[in-house]
Design a protein around this nucleic acid. Sequence first.
DNA 1: TAATATATTTAGACGAATCTAATAATTATT
DNA 2: AATAATTATTAGATTCGTCTAAATATATTA
Lengths: 218, 218
Amino acid sequence: MKFSEAEENYIKSIYHLQLSNNKVSATLLAAAVNTKAASVTDMLKKLQLKKLINYKPYQSFTLTDKGNKVALDIIRKHRLWEFFLVSKLGFKWDEVHAIAEELEHISSEELILRLDNFLDNPSFDPHGDPIPDRNGKIKFIPQKNLSAAPLKKELIVSSIKDQSSEMLELLKHYHIGIGTKMKINKRFDFDGSVEIKIDKLPVAIVSEQMAKNIFCKI
Amino acid sequence: MKFSEAEENYIKSIYHLQLSNNKVSATLLAAAVNTKAASVTDMLKKLQLKKLINYKPYQSFTLTDKGNKVALDIIRKHRLWEFFLVSKLGFKWDEVHAIAEELEHISSEELILRLDNFLDNPSFDPHGDPIPDRNGKIKFIPQKNLSAAPLKKELIVSSIKDQSSEMLELLKHYHIGIGTKMKINKRFDFDGSVEIKIDKLPVAIVSEQMAKNIFCKI
DNA sequence: TAATATATTTAGACGAATCTAATAATTATT
DNA sequence: AATAATTATTAGATTCGTCTAAATATATTA
Ligand SMILES: [Mn+2]
Ligand SMILES: [Mn+2]
Ligand SMILES: [Mn+2]
Ligand SMILES: [Mn+2]
């Protein structure tokens, strides 16, 4: 079954919201797809008709199994394209999101299969997020953010939650990227800030807000 | 200025029709974009408002300079993507058109710049059609079809006009592709058919219809 | 629990792109 | 030049995705 670009964007956003906020509201979804709540309601009815979501008016909604599969398929495409853009075309990891947002809607199955192969079947995108395989299976990595990870242990940055350009700017300033190795020296209770040590760099302190968005393999 | 996918498809089709049929009619255009003449009329008005075509009701229309630039930009994207699909992903030349038809609408300038570079700035797509450079400049090759090319001279197939799957099937059967070397032995006046000789293959006869669609460097 | 605040849905409209059927203009043919 | 055939345009709908404003349901809190 084929879906419109709008439908795909809604589905994908519901998936993401479900992961982080587990209760998905019309208002949250509206913000995610950059539209108004009224438009969301309209779309929810369509998605329900197509059996992509479970939805009763005035109640929060969830993806059906079918909806979940569709979401994973779009996310797979999005992340494979991001990987392509960074690894083959030399884009920086903070430049690829908007382009992948378009590319993810190209419909050819065969294209994605071949792209996946061309890229040597990567498991993680440039932001450290897992790329679902063609069956929607995701390679799960146990990870903890800097507010939860253990002290004095070698950590490897594995993904960044908030991928806004503001966040990515700050990361660049700290010389932090996917794969960066660091140790946590100390956590400060007063403001939740965290002192970290990266290889040859002087110690640095990151805010709690930032720490919560930086995930590491443990 | 950004254009919708529909607008881009119309513009591109007008460009192509202008090249081959030089008088572009609403009916022809309707067939090319797979729609009805009434819809074409509606779109023509929009394109005129955006100064992409010269159009007076009931008269035939042409692209403006601006329209021409837009067309060349889309064609550039289409052909670069086709080149990518064949050279990097291993698609056959008869499998890429439909996919490029979608990819050509991805909007990022930077993406195309980098793709072009990644592909080593190719001048011709897998069907032998020239790829406009970023300024819309096209590398022109003098070529003649098999109904017009000289006899007994070494010819190199440089492009195929009709790129329907039927045509491409037939070409495969004859072992003819871009770059194939051949000589014309004889042309038959009765039906316009042409006897050709390809390197190690036995002589073969192609129909006039086919001959007119196979272009060679001379 | 009743009042208030917040979130969601409906009603009604709009722009884009399409369609069919009817009409009008152009072109070709007697 | 008049008629017939062809082609193009308009009129009126439809579908999709969106909007604002009004109405309604749910959640909060006094
Ligand atoms: Mn998208
Ligand atoms: Mn990503
Ligand atoms: Mn297209
Ligand atoms: Mn081509």
